[in-house]
Protein backbone atom coordinates (compact mmCIF):
# COMPACT_ATOMS: atom_id res chain seq x y z
CA UNK A 1 0.00 0.00 0.00
CA UNK A 2 1.49 3.25 -1.12
CA UNK A 3 0.23 5.22 1.85
CA UNK A 4 2.34 3.20 4.25
CA UNK A 5 5.71 4.57 5.37
CA UNK A 6 8.34 3.54 2.88
CA UNK A 7 10.40 1.80 5.53
CA UNK A 8 13.77 2.78 6.91
CA UNK A 9 14.51 5.36 9.53
CA UNK A 10 12.65 8.63 9.99
CA UNK A 11 15.76 10.21 11.47
CA UNK A 12 19.36 9.04 11.43
CA UNK A 13 21.30 7.87 14.45
CA UNK A 14 23.74 10.80 14.52
CA UNK A 15 20.89 13.32 14.56
CA UNK A 16 19.17 11.41 17.34
CA UNK A 17 22.32 11.23 19.42
CA UNK A 18 22.89 14.96 19.04
CA UNK A 19 19.27 15.79 19.82
CA UNK A 20 19.10 13.50 22.79
CA UNK A 21 22.27 14.89 24.39
CA UNK A 22 21.14 16.45 27.65
CA UNK A 23 24.43 16.35 29.56
CA UNK A 24 23.26 13.51 31.78
CA UNK A 25 20.00 15.27 32.67
CA UNK A 26 16.65 13.57 32.16
CA UNK A 27 14.84 14.80 29.04
CA UNK A 28 11.73 15.69 31.03
CA UNK A 29 11.52 16.16 34.77
CA UNK A 30 8.28 17.20 36.42
CA UNK A 31 8.40 18.08 40.12
CA UNK A 32 5.15 18.63 41.97
CA UNK A 33 3.47 20.26 38.97
CA UNK A 34 0.19 22.01 39.82
CA UNK A 35 -2.13 23.63 37.35
CA UNK A 36 -5.57 25.11 37.82
CA UNK A 37 -8.09 26.74 35.52
CA UNK A 38 -9.86 29.26 37.69
CA UNK A 39 -10.97 27.34 40.78
CA UNK A 40 -10.60 23.94 39.16
CA UNK A 41 -7.37 22.13 39.99
CA UNK A 42 -6.48 20.09 36.91
CA UNK A 43 -3.07 18.89 38.05
CA UNK A 44 -2.36 18.36 41.73
CA UNK A 45 1.31 17.69 42.20
CA UNK A 46 2.56 15.51 39.39
CA UNK A 47 6.06 14.00 39.44
CA UNK A 48 7.66 12.02 36.65
CA UNK A 49 10.89 11.65 34.74
CA UNK A 50 11.50 10.73 31.10
CA UNK A 51 15.05 9.72 30.17
CA UNK A 52 16.53 10.52 26.74
CA UNK A 53 15.45 8.17 23.94
CA UNK A 54 12.58 6.80 25.97
CA UNK A 55 8.89 6.72 25.13
CA UNK A 56 6.60 7.67 27.97
CA UNK A 57 2.86 7.07 27.61
CA UNK A 58 0.25 8.97 29.61
CA UNK A 59 -3.01 7.07 30.03
CA UNK A 60 -6.18 7.87 31.84
CA UNK A 61 -9.83 8.85 31.57
CA UNK A 62 -10.89 12.06 29.79
CA UNK A 63 -10.65 15.15 31.94
CA UNK A 64 -8.03 13.52 34.13
CA UNK A 65 -5.40 16.10 33.22
CA UNK A 66 -3.12 14.18 30.85
CA UNK A 67 -3.47 16.59 27.90
CA UNK A 68 -2.99 19.56 30.22
CA UNK A 69 0.19 17.97 31.57
CA UNK A 70 1.48 17.50 28.03
CA UNK A 71 0.73 21.12 27.17
CA UNK A 72 2.57 22.25 30.29
CA UNK A 73 5.73 20.53 29.07
CA UNK A 74 6.12 22.97 26.16
CA UNK A 75 4.61 25.82 28.14
CA UNK A 76 1.43 26.12 26.09
CA UNK A 77 -0.05 26.18 29.59
CA UNK A 78 1.65 27.97 32.48
CA UNK A 79 2.06 25.86 35.58
CA UNK A 80 0.97 27.34 38.91
CA UNK A 81 3.34 25.48 41.23
CA UNK A 82 6.25 23.07 41.03
CA UNK A 83 8.98 22.88 38.43
CA UNK A 84 9.10 21.46 34.92
CA UNK A 85 12.46 20.88 33.26
CA UNK A 86 13.22 19.83 29.70
CA UNK A 87 16.81 18.70 29.14
CA UNK A 88 17.73 20.34 32.44
CA UNK A 89 16.25 23.69 31.45
CA UNK A 90 13.38 25.17 33.44
CA UNK A 91 10.42 25.74 31.08
CA UNK A 92 9.01 29.24 30.77
CA UNK A 93 10.94 30.74 33.68
CA UNK A 94 14.47 31.74 34.60
CA UNK A 95 15.61 31.05 38.13
CA UNK A 96 17.96 33.65 39.58
CA UNK A 97 18.79 32.70 43.14
CA UNK A 98 15.41 32.04 44.72
CA UNK A 99 13.50 34.37 42.40
CA UNK A 100 11.66 33.22 39.28
CA UNK A 101 11.48 35.52 36.28
CA UNK A 102 8.94 34.95 33.53
CA UNK A 103 10.56 34.45 30.16
CA UNK A 104 9.63 36.82 27.36
CA UNK A 105 7.81 35.54 24.28
CA UNK A 106 11.01 35.21 22.26
CA UNK A 107 12.76 33.01 24.81
CA UNK A 108 9.68 30.84 25.25
CA UNK A 109 9.53 30.47 21.46
CA UNK A 110 13.20 29.43 21.44
CA UNK A 111 12.50 26.73 24.05
CA UNK A 112 9.48 25.47 22.13
CA UNK A 113 11.42 25.27 18.86
CA UNK A 114 13.28 22.20 20.16
CA UNK A 115 10.12 20.41 21.30
CA UNK A 116 7.87 18.99 18.61
CA UNK A 117 4.16 18.70 19.21
CA UNK A 118 1.49 16.72 17.38
CA UNK A 119 -2.14 17.57 18.04
CA UNK A 120 -5.33 15.55 18.10
CA UNK A 121 -6.85 17.76 15.41
CA UNK A 122 -3.62 17.92 13.30
CA UNK A 123 -3.67 21.76 13.10
CA UNK A 124 -1.95 21.83 9.73
CA UNK A 125 -1.81 25.27 8.13
CA UNK A 126 -4.69 25.02 5.63
CA UNK A 127 -3.35 27.76 3.32
CA UNK A 128 -0.07 25.92 2.79
CA UNK A 129 0.67 22.70 0.91
CA UNK A 130 2.08 19.65 2.70
CA UNK A 131 5.67 20.57 1.88
CA UNK A 132 5.10 24.25 2.72
CA UNK A 133 3.73 23.19 6.09
CA UNK A 134 6.93 21.25 6.77
CA UNK A 135 9.29 23.97 5.43
CA UNK A 136 7.68 26.95 7.13
CA UNK A 137 9.24 26.80 10.60
CA UNK A 138 12.76 25.72 9.55
CA UNK A 139 12.89 28.67 7.13
CA UNK A 140 11.27 31.30 9.34
CA UNK A 141 12.47 30.23 12.78
CA UNK A 142 15.81 28.49 12.19
CA UNK A 143 16.64 30.50 9.04
CA UNK A 144 17.53 27.38 7.05
CA UNK A 145 18.08 28.31 3.35
CA UNK A 146 14.90 27.62 1.36
CA UNK A 147 16.49 25.05 -0.98
CA UNK A 148 17.90 23.04 1.91
CA UNK A 149 14.65 23.22 3.87
CA UNK A 150 12.71 22.07 0.82
CA UNK A 151 15.04 19.12 0.24
CA UNK A 152 14.83 18.08 3.90
CA UNK A 153 11.06 18.46 3.93
CA UNK A 154 10.81 16.25 0.85
CA UNK A 155 12.93 13.53 2.51
CA UNK A 156 10.80 13.69 5.66
CA UNK A 157 7.50 13.52 3.79
CA UNK A 158 8.79 10.56 1.77
CA UNK A 159 9.83 8.77 4.96
CA UNK A 160 6.29 9.09 6.35
CA UNK A 161 4.95 7.70 3.07
CA UNK A 162 3.73 10.95 1.54
CA UNK A 163 6.16 11.36 -1.35
CA UNK A 164 3.20 11.64 -3.71
CA UNK A 165 1.45 14.36 -1.71
CA UNK A 166 4.13 17.07 -1.44
CA UNK A 167 2.11 19.75 -3.22
CA UNK A 168 -1.29 18.86 -1.85
CA UNK A 169 -3.25 21.12 0.47
CA UNK A 170 -4.35 19.63 3.82
CA UNK A 171 -8.04 19.79 2.84
CA UNK A 172 -7.39 17.14 0.18
CA UNK A 173 -5.58 14.74 2.51
CA UNK A 174 -7.17 12.06 4.66
CA UNK A 175 -6.93 12.41 8.43
CA UNK A 176 -4.13 9.85 8.60
CA UNK A 177 -2.18 11.63 5.87
CA UNK A 178 -2.69 14.99 7.59
CA UNK A 179 -1.41 13.61 10.87
CA UNK A 180 1.68 12.19 9.15
CA UNK A 181 2.34 15.62 7.61
CA UNK A 182 1.97 17.07 11.11
CA UNK A 183 4.56 14.60 12.43
CA UNK A 184 6.93 15.48 9.57
CA UNK A 185 6.35 19.18 10.28
CA UNK A 186 7.37 18.71 13.91
CA UNK A 187 10.39 16.55 12.98
CA UNK A 188 11.62 19.18 10.50
CA UNK A 189 12.66 21.33 13.47
CA UNK A 190 15.00 18.50 14.59
CA UNK A 191 13.41 18.41 18.04
CA UNK A 192 15.01 16.71 21.04
CA UNK A 193 11.57 15.76 22.36
CA UNK A 194 8.26 14.96 20.70
CA UNK A 195 4.89 15.42 22.39
CA UNK A 196 1.83 13.61 21.02
CA UNK A 197 -1.61 14.74 22.22
CA UNK A 198 -4.05 11.93 21.37
CA UNK A 199 -2.69 11.78 17.82
CA UNK A 200 -5.09 9.07 16.65
CA UNK A 201 -8.28 10.05 18.48
CA UNK A 202 -9.70 12.11 15.60
CA UNK A 203 -8.97 9.45 12.98
CA UNK A 204 -11.24 6.94 11.31
CA UNK A 205 -10.40 3.49 12.74
CA UNK A 206 -8.85 2.22 9.51
CA UNK A 207 -6.42 5.18 9.44
CA UNK A 208 -5.08 4.77 12.98
CA UNK A 209 -2.55 2.12 11.97
CA UNK A 210 -0.63 4.26 9.48
CA UNK A 211 -0.06 6.98 12.10
CA UNK A 212 0.88 4.51 14.83
CA UNK A 213 3.37 2.85 12.44
CA UNK A 214 5.15 6.17 11.98
CA UNK A 215 5.21 6.76 15.74
CA UNK A 216 6.54 3.27 16.42
CA UNK A 217 9.31 3.78 13.89
CA UNK A 218 10.15 7.07 15.54
CA UNK A 219 10.34 5.39 18.96
CA UNK A 220 12.59 2.66 17.57
CA UNK A 221 14.82 5.32 16.00
CA UNK A 222 15.43 6.60 19.51
CA UNK A 223 13.35 9.76 19.60
CA UNK A 224 12.33 10.82 23.10
CA UNK A 225 8.54 10.88 23.16
CA UNK A 226 5.74 11.69 25.57
CA UNK A 227 2.48 10.34 24.23
CA UNK A 228 -1.07 10.86 25.45
CA UNK A 229 -3.13 8.08 23.90
CA UNK A 230 -5.83 5.50 24.39
CA UNK A 231 -4.00 3.00 22.19
CA UNK A 232 -3.09 0.26 24.67
CA UNK A 233 -1.36 -1.78 21.98
CA UNK A 234 1.01 1.08 21.26
CA UNK A 235 1.77 1.51 24.97
CA UNK A 236 2.52 -2.20 25.39
CA UNK A 237 4.65 -2.41 22.30
CA UNK A 238 6.89 0.65 22.47
CA UNK A 239 6.54 2.42 25.82
CA UNK A 240 9.47 2.40 28.25
CA UNK A 241 7.22 3.85 30.91
CA UNK A 242 3.53 4.45 31.35
CA UNK A 243 1.62 6.56 33.84
CA UNK A 244 -2.06 6.52 34.65
CA UNK A 245 -3.37 10.01 35.38
CA UNK A 246 -6.73 10.55 37.00
CA UNK A 247 -8.09 13.40 39.06
CA UNK A 248 -4.96 15.44 38.45
CA UNK A 249 -2.53 12.98 40.00
CA UNK A 250 -0.45 10.09 38.73
CA UNK A 251 -2.26 7.08 40.14
CA UNK A 252 0.38 4.58 39.13
CA UNK A 253 3.48 4.61 36.96
CA UNK A 254 6.15 2.16 35.88
CA UNK A 255 7.17 -0.14 33.03
CA UNK A 256 4.22 -1.11 30.80
CA UNK A 257 4.36 -4.76 31.80
CA UNK A 258 3.86 -3.83 35.45
CA UNK A 259 1.23 -1.13 35.07
CA UNK A 260 -0.77 -2.66 32.24
CA UNK A 261 -0.52 -6.34 33.12
CA UNK A 262 -0.16 -6.34 36.91
CA UNK A 263 -1.65 -3.08 38.15
CA UNK A 264 -1.43 -2.50 41.90
CA UNK A 265 -3.98 0.28 42.25
CA UNK A 266 -7.71 -0.33 42.14
CA UNK A 267 -8.24 2.73 39.96
CA UNK A 268 -5.78 1.44 37.38
CA UNK A 269 -7.52 -1.93 37.29
CA UNK A 270 -10.89 -0.22 36.87
CA UNK A 271 -9.61 1.97 34.05
CA UNK A 272 -7.93 -0.90 32.24
CA UNK A 273 -11.00 -3.10 32.54
CA UNK A 274 -13.06 -0.35 30.88
CA UNK A 275 -10.58 0.32 28.10
CA UNK A 276 -9.84 -3.30 27.33
CA UNK A 277 -13.48 -4.41 27.59
Amino acid sequence: MSSQPEGGHLIDAATIAAEAATGGQPMVKAEQVWKSFGKLDVLKGVDFVVQPQQTFVLLGPSGGGKSTLLRCINHLEKIDAGRLYVAGELMGYRERGKVLHEMNARDVARQRASIGMVFQRFNLFPHKTAIENVMEAPIRVQHVPRKKAEAEAEVLLRSVGLGEKLDTYPAQLSGGQQQRVAIARALAMKPKLMLFDEPTSALDPELVGEVLDVMKQLARDGMTMVVVTHEMGFAKEVADGVALIDGGVIVEQGPPNDVLLNPKEERTKLFLSKVLA
Binding site: A105, A109, M117, H127, R140
Partner: peptide, 24 residues
Protein backbone atom coordinates in the same frame (compact mmCIF):
# COMPACT_ATOMS: atom_id res chain seq x y z
CA UNK B 1 -5.24 25.41 17.14
CA UNK B 2 -3.39 27.26 14.37
CA UNK B 3 -1.78 29.59 16.88
CA UNK B 4 -0.89 26.65 19.15
CA UNK B 5 0.65 24.77 16.24
CA UNK B 6 2.67 27.81 15.20
CA UNK B 7 3.89 28.53 18.73
CA UNK B 8 4.80 24.90 19.32
CA UNK B 9 7.03 25.20 16.24
CA UNK B 10 8.85 28.06 17.95
CA UNK B 11 7.25 30.85 15.93
CA UNK B 12 7.07 34.19 17.76
CA UNK B 13 3.68 35.90 18.19
CA UNK B 14 4.55 38.45 15.48
CA UNK B 15 5.64 35.76 13.02
CA UNK B 16 2.55 33.70 13.82
CA UNK B 17 0.32 36.69 13.14
CA UNK B 18 2.06 37.55 9.87
CA UNK B 19 2.58 34.09 8.38
CA UNK B 20 -0.25 31.99 9.82
CA UNK B 21 -3.12 34.07 11.19
CA UNK B 22 -3.43 37.05 8.80
CA UNK B 23 -3.26 34.99 5.57
CA UNK B 24 -6.11 32.82 6.86
Amino acid sequence: GQIEAASSLGMSPTLTMRRIVLPQ
